[in-house]
Design a protein around this nucleic acid. Structure first.
Lengths: 96, 96
DNA sequence: ACGGTATTTCCAGAAATATCGAATGATTGG
DNA sequence: CCAATCATTCGATATTTCTGGAAATACCGT
């Protein structure tokens, strides 16, 4: 019903260069994913900033997280991205 | 070279609910496109606000404009959107 | 040139985002 | 329990984005 909104939220999440870099790093990492620490080494931004961006990506389900002891593993959520792509490309029926 | 950036810019442009509505209205309109005025009737926002959003979409080439007398016809730029989708889905090689 | 319609630019205020150091919380191994 | 490591939250600032009324501009027909 609010398709447009959830699509926009995901696009907005990916629309920040830093967050897009994070997402792409996770795509590159594949199914193994990356810990927040590993991500920090690659992206090279302060931990707090990274944490905020990760929260945004997780909030729209583009990224999932799994605890493993003291570390957190982050993974790109492919099905959600595929759905987003389909939604973005397909011709919308009408409304908003 | 700045792939990530230009992708991010386009995603950001579509990441605003109002702009996404505008873009979708243009997709619905098809090859005929819509004048700015027609767009305003559908989206129902002040002309100046609409103009700002259109400028953003045109600025990243997701929308094209063609003058026709006193009116401006806006059209969704499909090739750019297709390119964006491909970029977003394909696994990036490395770097930022 | 004038009047009218279509659209953009100017301006400004409100709201949202991005950033990051410092403090805090969580979890495990010893 | 303590120390250590990994990560998040707090607090504060700087920057950007969004919004829309008013004024300006563009283009046509007469």
């Amino acid at each position: 019903m609010d398709t447009t909104l959830s699509i926009a939220k995901r696009l907005e999440a990916l629309g920040n260069p830093t967050r897009l870099s994070i997402y792409r790093a996770l795509v590159r990492a594949g199914d193994g994913g990356l810990t927040v620490g590993a991500l920090q080494e690659r992206i090279r931004i302060p931990a707090s900033t990274l944490s905020h961006h990760l929260r945004a990506l997780v909030g729209v389900a583009l990224v999932t997280q799994e605890r493993q002891g003291t570390t957190l593993i982050c993974r790109a959520n492919y099905p959600v991205m595929n759905g987003l792509v389909v939604s973005a490309v397909s011709i919308p029926p009408s409304s908003p």
